[in-house]
Computed example of a mutant assay.
Amino acid sequence: MNIASLPWYDFPEIKPATDSFWHFFASRLKKAGFHPPDFLTRNISYKHQWQSPFLLFSQACGYDVVKPFIRDLRVVATPCYNVPDCLDHNYSSFIIVRSDAKIESIEDLYHKSCAINCQHSHSGANILYFVVANYVKNCTNFFSRAEYSGSHENSIRMVSENKVDTAAIDCLSYHILKKFRPQLFKKIRIIHRTPHAPAPPYVTSASRSELEITTIREILWELNEAPQMQPIFRELFIREIKYIPFEEYFHILDMEKIALKKYIQTGENN
């Protein structure tokens, strides 16, 4: 049985819109000869889903598609988000601290603690280390400790509750959460906006044929012009869905290489 999921940005406040997106998209997939599931899968780890040859559709981090799951996933298309700090098909992260913290710059984070949403997250981990590597001459033991939070929302909460000093939050998660849960941000401020990278792509199993991948991609493009999808797009903060060359995602690995080179040379990983 085919599997479909949309684990990125699946916040309760916009879950009905996410389901509506899938139901309309699935109806188009059926007409094209696919056998999509009636409902999105939310009770199985997305990492297990991504390794299944039955994966029909999902969304992953750009880091995932160029490194840990490069053999399991194929990029189908990229959503362009309609929020500040998203530029065309690219997004960025905000580096946050507590409002009352005596921290004004990246250099001020030296020997401070950070929250990381996930080890393989570009927006919450990779980009944070890249920014440090670019702004700080000596990265040796830069952070006093790093704690995994499990989500951007939890990272914000950990900073707000003074459990850690800083975190990198992807700009879409930041804007969605600030709209629906403004209380999370009463003690939060941004000290840095990071460079852009391609937004989390829509993916399918690498076992799919080129014809299947092309067909899924074309159906996604058709959603851009479907009148029924426009209110759903607005609720999901999507401006349009487009295809970009897969090679653009390797920019994320370029950032990682720069960060690793600086950290290794200065003894951070020793």
Rank of each mutant, 00 (worst) to 15 (best):
N117Y: 01
I213K: 13
D254P: 02
C114Q: 04
P37E: 00
Y249W: 03
F54C: 13
K137G: 12
Q51C: 11
N43W: 02
I96E: 03
F24E: 03
G150Y: 04
A197P: 02
E235P: 14
N162V: 02
T18S: 14
K102R: 12
K179N: 11
Q49R: 11
V76L: 13
R145E: 12
Y9W: 12
H35P: 00
Y46A: 05
K179T: 12
N154Y: 03
I156R: 08
A206Y: 04
Y91T: 13
A17H: 07
C80N: 07
A226P: 05
D100R: 09
E212V: 07
T204A: 13
F94E: 02
P182G: 15
P227M: 07
L223D: 01
Y202Q: 11
L40F: 03
I156S: 03
E218V: 07
C61V: 00
A115R: 14
R239F: 06
S58L: 10
L177F: 12
S160N: 10
N90L: 05
R208Q: 14
M1D: 15
I216C: 09
D108Q: 12
Y249T: 02
A26N: 00
P195R: 14
P68T: 06
I232A: 10
L109S: 02
I252S: 05
I14D: 06
S20V: 00
M229T: 07
V203P: 04
E212N: 11
T266A: 08
F180R: 15
N126V: 04
A4P: 11
V83G: 11
T204K: 13
Y135S: 15
I176Q: 11
K187T: 06
I238V: 15
T266P: 03
L55H: 11
L6D: 10
S160M: 09
A197F: 07
T78S: 14
E13N: 12
D38L: 04
D72L: 01
K15A: 12
V76Q: 04
H120M: 14
Y174T: 12
K257A: 04
I190Y: 10
S144M: 14
S160G: 09
P12H: 14
Y249C: 04
L73F: 00
S123G: 14
I156N: 05
V66C: 06
E240I: 06
N270R: 11
F34W: 02
P227C: 09
E268P: 04
T41W: 02
I176W: 06
Y202F: 15
K67P: 00
F180M: 14
E240V: 03
